[in-house]
Design a protein around this nucleic acid. Structure first.
Length: 301
DNA sequence: CACTTGACCTGTCCGC
DNA sequence: TGCGGACAGGTCAAGT
């Protein structure tokens, strides 16, 4: 396993972090907030001090922590954000992954001091991530979440969020001339898919990432729809993909990177039987400025 | 209007 | 060995 990639939290990673936070944080009270980097925390910390943590939600890649006093904390982890809990609700904490930047460490931007001598650390190497204080009843209509497309995983939508249906998926595709991969990653169309899972889903469906969205046949769009669901589900099942900075709320690593079929596989033999036999190698191109991996044979344009 | 590129950051890796 | 540059990728702003 290489250590050169930054595997940013996408839907399965954020969902894994969320379910950990749900387990560990609910019932805790926020006693204090220490902000080490001003741009990492937007809003007034006084509005959350003294509040109890009531629950967690996820909208696409945005994590929401709802408090008992009418306020919520929204977080986007962007590329390198980590939320790590230490306290009595985490029995037998796993040995801290080396990917964790210390607790606290050099890259700890915000520390929430909770009751019962517990702490929630927000680490973020590149400072792209943010935590924002917002009234709970404004969460679904404000900013990114307000414009966000439907949730691609059945059973995973937060209340009030639409689920992506095949019909809606086809409708989105039919309206866009963009390369399909770029469309999949557009959060205002579908929420939660990033570079890794877009690459993986397209390989699984046997579709070239550059193919124009509106040119997908009904059978291909259905194939892709199912592939998206499959890779996201398997991502969650594996606890997310850790190559560089992603860890769960307990501070340990996910395993989905071991299941990668194309992502970061440039020059390796495509694992589809016919391609493997013929020795076809995975290629890498830039699409929308992002690294894009595909098999030139089983993902023909 | 649609699409592309750059900025935001920091660390790692690669080649000279 | 040291150093500079390319690269990693989500989102938004600015440019074409």
């Amino acid at each position: 396993m290489g250590f050169k990639l930054i595997t940013m939290p996408e839907l399965p990673e954020v969902e894994t972090i969320r379910s950990g936070l749900e387990k560990y944080l609910v019932g805790h009270k926020i006693e204090d907030v220490q902000i080490n980097v001003a741009k990492s925390f937007i809003g007034n910390p006084k509005e959350i001090i003294g509040a109890k943590i009531a629950g967690t939600r996820r909208f696409g890649k945005v994590l929401v922590i709802d408090l008992s006093n009418g306020f919520s904390l929204l977080t986007h982890l962007k590329l390198t954000g980590q939320y790590i809990y230490r306290g009595p609700h985490l029995k037998n904490p796993p040995s801290l992954s080396q990917k964790v930047f210390g607790l606290p460490g050099k890259h700890t931007r915000v520390i929430f001091k909770l009751d019962q001598n517990a702490y929630l650390y927000f680490n973020d190497l590149r400072k792209f991530g943010w935590i924002r204080v917002l009234e709970t009843d404004k969460v679904t209509e404000t900013g990114m979440i307000g414009k966000m497309g439907p949730e691609p995983l059945v059973g995973q939508a937060s209340s009030g969020q639409a689920i992506l249906t095949l019909e809606f998926f086809r409708k989105i595709l039919s309206k866009s001339k963009k390369p399909i991969k770029l469309l999949l990653m557009e959060q205002e169309k579908i929420s939660g898919i990033g570079n890794i899972y877009a690459n993986e889903a397209l390989w699984l469906a046997g579709i070239n990432p550059r193919k124009k969205s509106l040119s997908l046949s009904p059978s291909l769009s259905e194939k892709l729809f199912k592939a998206i669901e499959k890779v996201l589900k398997e991502g969650i099942k594996a606890g997310g993909a850790s190559d560089m900075h992603y860890v769960t709320a307990a501070g340990d690593e996910g395993k989905y990177q071991e299941h990668f079929l194309v992502y970061d596989k440039k020059g390796e033999i495509c694992s589809r039987p016919a391609c493997r036999q013929a020795g076809v190698k995975i290629e890498k191109i830039q699409l929308g400025g992002r690294g894009t991996y595909f098999c030139p044979i089983c993902q023909k344009l």
